[in-house]
Nucleic acid binder design. Structure first.
Lengths: 195, 195
DNA sequence: ATTTTTATAATACGGTTGTGCTGAAAAGGA
DNA sequence: TCCTTTTCAGCACAACCGTATTATAAAAAT
């Protein structure tokens, strides 16, 4: 056997380089050459790990999803008051620090570059059902106002979260993280029973 | 003087071809060549109206904005009950028919392809202030619940509108227009005084 | 009819793209 | 030591990109 190199680790390094390039130059600048340069490897080496550009981008972007999922799973493992836990989870889906902001920006640039393919590729498919579960969790803990339509509330919260992420991308100077947090908190309060 | 050709009209035809290309192939496929082909003109003819690609795209996308603005101005000119007028305006900002959906999809693909330039270019500048005015209009007509923070409410509504547009783009099969209308209507009701 | 200006077409050019191909270097197993 | 397999580098190629240049056609103005 040849030189030992952790395949998965190397692929993640390349994915990280991909993120940096997308953040710096947008999806248009995310060429295989510039990514290889950013990762400080040759074009041939890059192609050894990803045989096509689509494969590379799909991997790099799926990794973004997995990271976000992992963070949410961590929060679910903690022992927190229900409403605090819900707020913490929602705060992970919205750009409140430089890391999550970078993740969101990369993700948004990618999904919108897919054009009409985004639907069939099923990007962000389990997001709505995830938000749905959050709402049901609130109801189960008797924290949700009882006059609300659960489906509509979930859809509203879901749109609110991604709308905030979108505006944080397009207008980062106007939409500060404090403002994002305030919007999300106030909406959460508005659908919860006040006590 | 030479052959008479309505300059502005021709540019709008080319812009329309640009929209079709972006919808079909995404921003990546929006090359000057494919746009010229879609508009059924030569590359040289295209270049006679737009000397650079950026200029063409900027024109085509600003036209999208102007169309939306014009539709809203039309509604403002009508004589409608205040809440109906507000709902009608919000419905123009969200993809509820094939035309507005196409407009939104093209617009979203464009602004996200700009990457970090979007902020400095000030795309969708006056959107927030526009929503702000809608909220103030509701308050002035004594329709807005008085316990609400106006700024936060405007920011929430703004994010909700664009979040819905975004999801209509990414998940058109799940998020039907009926559902979009229901979400927007229910949120509008929730911030208005019930009577 | 001739001039002049615009509209359009055709072609060219330098650069970049994704991807394929070849071969060498490296390193564990025999 | 030799062999096999992985890792990686480099180059090549065809296609496409945005833009520039040039030439032709058309039509209003003189």
């Amino acid at each position: 056997m040849p030189k030992i190199v952790n395949h998965e680790e190397k692929k993640e390094q390349i994915a990280a380089a991909t993120w940096r390039v997308v953040l710096r130059d947008g999806m248009k600048g995310a060429t295989v050459r510039s990514i290889a340069k950013e990762a400080d490897i040759s074009l041939g080496a890059l192609r050894h790990y990803f045989s096509t550009q689509d494969e590379l981008l799909a991997y790099a972007m799926q990794l973004v999803r997995e990271r976000a999922n992992a963070r949410i799973q961590d929060i679910l493992g903690e022992d927190l008051p229900p409403k605090t836990m819900v707020r913490r989870i929602l705060f992970e889906l919205v750009p409140l620090n430089e890391d999550t902001r970078a993740e969101m920006d990369v993700w948004l640039a990618y999904v919108f570059s897919l054009g009409r393919k985004a639907d069939s590729l099923g990007v962000q498919q389990d997001m709505y059902s995830g938000i749905r579960k959050v709402i049901e969790y609130l109801e189960h803990r008797r924290l949700l106002r009882e006059d609300l339509d659960k489906e509509l509330t979930a859809e509203t919260l879901y749109s609110l979260v991604d709308g905030l992420a979108m505006h944080a991308f397009l207008e980062p100077r106007r939409l500060t993280k404090e403002r994002i947090a305030a919007v999300l908190t106030s909406y959460l309060d508005s659908i919860c029973i006040d006590e």
